[in-house]
Design a binder for these strands. Structure first.
Lengths: 119, 119
DNA sequence: AACGTATATCGCCGATGTACGATAAGTCAA
DNA sequence: TTGACTTATCGTACATCGGCGATATACGTT
């Protein structure tokens, strides 16, 4: 991504993009679904569920952690992961606003592109 | 990505991941915000708004188009883009379900990892 | 300490994403 | 047709991702 020229965009734009990036892989979606269903799972259980090597799954988990989507607690030699619903809800709300799916219907729009814009 | 071993995951998981991937760049978030505010914009207007080269912006627009997030209509020599709210709403709903932010509160969960799981 | 288990990290590789200039392809006007 | 304009695509360079085996780290048990 060439560092995405990320400094050229707003904090919120980068933040939303990062959140979306965390969800941008089917394996990570699967992990989220698993945690959604079970409430809590160890890393090992997640590995067993996915058709990927332990190292790869660990990377996906770490990606979700860095995005703030997971809670984890040590539990002896295991680590239990669960969803951080607060973060998730917060991001979802931001997305709803950005995507315009909260209130305000599709906004009809008079469409100016073919009228005044004939410069 | 490596084709992401995408065949190993469900259709819906891949679909959601693709949608998230389309949003996983601040420039694309910025494009969406722009269209959300203006309702409709030409490619040229979008280029002027972003701090990126025309070719790069065109690629981002194409990424959003391929994800089904944009409507476009020819308008003389210009092309007007707008948000495809139907698609967006549909994806948002899927995400709400996957992320568990629709109904069902955070699910307390008895947490079995430290009890029965001591195999 | 030594071992087994659980998880994270490293190193490597091929594939993909991002960025750009240059150029092609299309439309409209003269 | 020529020319100005708008947008998409090509070619290239580089960074990042996604995958894996191997290894390191950390904990609990004996």
């Amino acid at each position: 991504m060439t560092a995405s020229k990320t400094e050229l965009f707003s904090e919120e734009q980068s933040s939303l993009a990062a959140f979306a990036g965390a969800l941008a892989h089917p394996a990570r979606i699967a992990i989220i679904e698993l945690l959604q269903n079970r409430g809590e799972s160890t890393s090992g259980e997640i590995v067993q569920t996915l058709p990927l090597a332990q190292a790869t799954v660990s990377q996906h988990i770490m990606a979700l952690r860095k995005a703030g989507l997971l809670n984890h607690r040590d539990c002896g030699k295991k680590i239990c992961y669960s969803l951080n619903y607060d973060q998730i809800r917060q991001f979802c709300h931001s997305f709803q606003c950005t995507l315009g799916t909260t209130d305000a219907p599709p906004t009809p729009v008079p469409s100016t592109c073919c009228t005044e814009e004939n410069a």
